[in-house]
Each structure stands twice: as C-alpha cells, then as structure tokens.
Computed example of a mutant assay.
Amino acid sequence: MKILLSGGGTGGHIYPALALIKRIKQVHPSSEIMYIGTEKGLESKIVRNAAIAFKSIEIQGFKRSLSISNLKTILLFFISIKKSKKIIKDFQPDVVIGTGGYVCAPVIYAASKLKIPTIIHEQNSVAGVTNKFLARYATKIAVCFEEARAEFSRYSDKVSYTGNPRAQEVVGIKPSTILKDYHLAVNQPTVLIFGGSRGARSLNEAFIAALPELNKKKYQVLFATGDVHYERIKKQVEPQIKENLSISVVPYIENMPEVFANVDLVVSRSGATTLAELTALGLPSILVPSPYVTNDHQTKNAESLTKRGAAKMITEDQLTGKSLIKAIDELMLHEEIRNNMAKAAKQLGLPEAADHLIQMIKEIIR
C-alpha cells in the first residue's frame, strides 16, 4: 500500500496520524508512507523526527473577522491545491488520509479531484471547520466520539465510529517504575495533574491554592506546570514542598502514556488525544476543559465522558483550590467510586482503533 497522510497545527492532529503510521508499518511492513504538512507547523519537526517522508505546502487558516489576510489565505489555498496535486501524482498513493488542521483542506480536495480515495479523521466530538468543508469530498469519515456523527448528518452513509489510533498505541503499556524518575514512590496511590505541554494557568493557580491541603494527604501528587510557567511556580511552591516526598513538581512529562499507566487519577484538559489515552487505559479523570478552543469542543469532549460516568468535570470558572481538592478527594478517598469510573472509561476505549482505520483503508482501495 502507498498511503499519503496530512494533518497539522496541533499535536492532536499529528499524533493520531503517527500512531496510525506505526500500526500500518507493523501489519504491512512493505507499505510506503508520505506526509504533507506545513513548514511552520509542529508537524514539520515531529514527522521528520519520526523518519517519515515529508513534503510541505504553504497554507494558513482564515481569520474569523474581516481581514485582508483572508485574501492571501484564498490565494494560498489554490496554490497549495496545485502543489498537492503534483505531490499526489508523483507519489501515486492508494489512499489519502487527513487527520485535521487547515493543511488537510487542499490535500484532501486535490486527491478527490484526482479520483483518489480519501478518509478524514475527526478526533473531537465537535467537528473542525476543515473537516466540515471536506466532508462532501471525502470517501469516508472516521469519528472518535459518537456525538460527532451529528456533525456530518448530511453524509451519514460515509461515517464510521473508529476511535483514535493513539488508543491502540498506548493500550499495551504496562505498569513500571517510572514514578521513581519523578522522585515519587512506586505502588503508592498517585494523582497526576497537568494542563498540556504548555500548561494551563487556571490549573496552575488551583494547584498553588490547593497545596496546603495536598501537603496533608496520604496520596502522592505529580504536577506538570508546563515549560513556560515552571520557574515562576517553582519559586512559589518550593518552600512548601521542600521536605514533602509525596509531591513532585516538574515542567513537562516526556512519556505521558507510561506515566498514565502508573497513576490512579488524572486531572487535565480534555483534548481528544488525552481522552483517547485515558479511556484506552481505563483511567478515572477530572477534566477541566479549555474554554479557549474552537467551538468549545473540549467541553463537549468532557461531557461525552461525564454523562457515561467515565469522568468528572470542573468548568474553568468553577475551578478553585477548594473545588480541586474536593473533586480529587471524592475519588482518591473512595476506591469503589474510582474503580467504577475506571470501568466506565475502559468501556469507552477503542483499543483496536488503528486496526479499524486500516480496515477502512482496505475497503475503499479494493
């Protein structure tokens, strides 16, 4: 098989693509893979570092307000369609897959005009603007939340619930001694709190406010501030945790899935990739959706889990040190509640998500 993928802008669009590529190479080692992204996006570094053939196009998103830059966006769109067609003709893929971000628009559109089978993959419960635009041109639409089906109601015959390939990548991870790397004890109840790679100011402030109470708890806490916030927060909290061996504050966690496999509760934002990993591993969580994302999709993602008993949610305007402690204690001090939430999360996980997508690929290229 020859497979062309495109996706960019955020890790949430890139990492599912990489997880799918990894699985394709495992089950079809002779497959040829190519990736189209932008030079300015995260994908240019992440994909190249993964030793995957990479081609770039120049494209940008529309401004939501009236702006002269939107004229440039339109011009770049037509130029990038032309370049995408050339890349596709040269590579001659059997299928083209878009995992989100505006870079996918010219790539999937070009492939459809060249009569190449296409798949768009929507990770969130609320579809992105690019995927809504591409739905009419795509051969198949893969979704990770059942709620997302309604976003493509005009094309319901194309939609399949496949899940996020990232789930299949993490589901086999076993408990380890990784907590030692963070100066915490192994096999002791542990809460992980983080706000994404760059951190989240609201979670950081709530942690600082909750610290006097967290210092008294019997459970451990691993807290990732985000690189940009670390030095400031370290100065604030260091005097309080200097002799407390059950609280560890770090800027960033490199291997998040392995840490997930060794903690009992996660407090985090509700991005699609994080939720795919949590449900694949059957981890209870307290979700604090970011209100600053398009269409408030993180709230919808969190609601998908909370209504099924797989997570608790605290909205950002309700997040305080007291509300954080209360929510954590409700789970960490009541094992039965925590276990029930873990079971509900596990039921939502799709541990064969990548295989579902591979099967979809095979069906449309026959």
Results as ranks from 00 to 15, higher is better:
P16A: 10
I141M: 07
I3R: 05
T38S: 14
A224M: 11
A185F: 09
L222K: 04
G9D: 04
T273L: 07
I193F: 07
H13D: 10
Y137F: 15
E336P: 00
Q123L: 07
L287Y: 06
A185D: 15
Y230D: 09
Q236P: 03
L211H: 01
A50V: 04
I253T: 12
T299L: 15
E363N: 14
S65G: 00
P289I: 10
Q240E: 10
L192F: 12
P117I: 11
E122C: 04
L287W: 07
S246K: 15
L184W: 02
L4V: 07
C104M: 06
P29A: 13
H356C: 07
V266A: 10
V267K: 05
K2D: 04
G61E: 00
R23H: 12
V191Y: 01
I358R: 06
A272V: 09
V96C: 11
R149P: 00
P239V: 13
A261W: 10
L287H: 08
E316P: 03
P351Q: 12
K216N: 15
A135D: 06
S112M: 02
T274H: 02
L324E: 10
I108A: 00
R269S: 12
T139C: 12
Q347C: 08
G163S: 11
L281Y: 06
K234G: 02
I208M: 12
K89R: 15
I337L: 08
H229D: 15
P291G: 14
I88N: 02
I81C: 09
L18Q: 09
I36E: 03
P16N: 10
L265R: 07
K86R: 14
I328S: 05
K217R: 14
Y137L: 14
R366K: 15
G196F: 09
I358M: 08
I33Y: 06
E43N: 06
I328W: 02
L211G: 02
D355T: 13
L75A: 13
G271Y: 03
A142D: 05
L203W: 03
H183T: 07
A327D: 04
P284D: 10
Q298K: 07
S176F: 13
L287A: 11
A127M: 04
G7R: 02
I14E: 01
I59Q: 01
A50E: 12
E151R: 06
A111P: 00
M256T: 13
K322V: 11
G98A: 11
V143T: 11
G11P: 06
G196W: 08
V47C: 10
L222M: 08
E330H: 05
T274D: 03
L76H: 09
T73M: 03
V143H: 01
P106M: 11
A17F: 02
C144Y: 00
R166Y: 05
A135W: 00
P117G: 11
I286R: 13
P93S: 09
L333I: 09
I68C: 00
P165C: 10
V129W: 00
I88S: 04
Q188A: 15
K158G: 05
G41D: 03
A354I: 01
T10S: 08
K322L: 08
L350Y: 01
P175Q: 14
F260A: 11
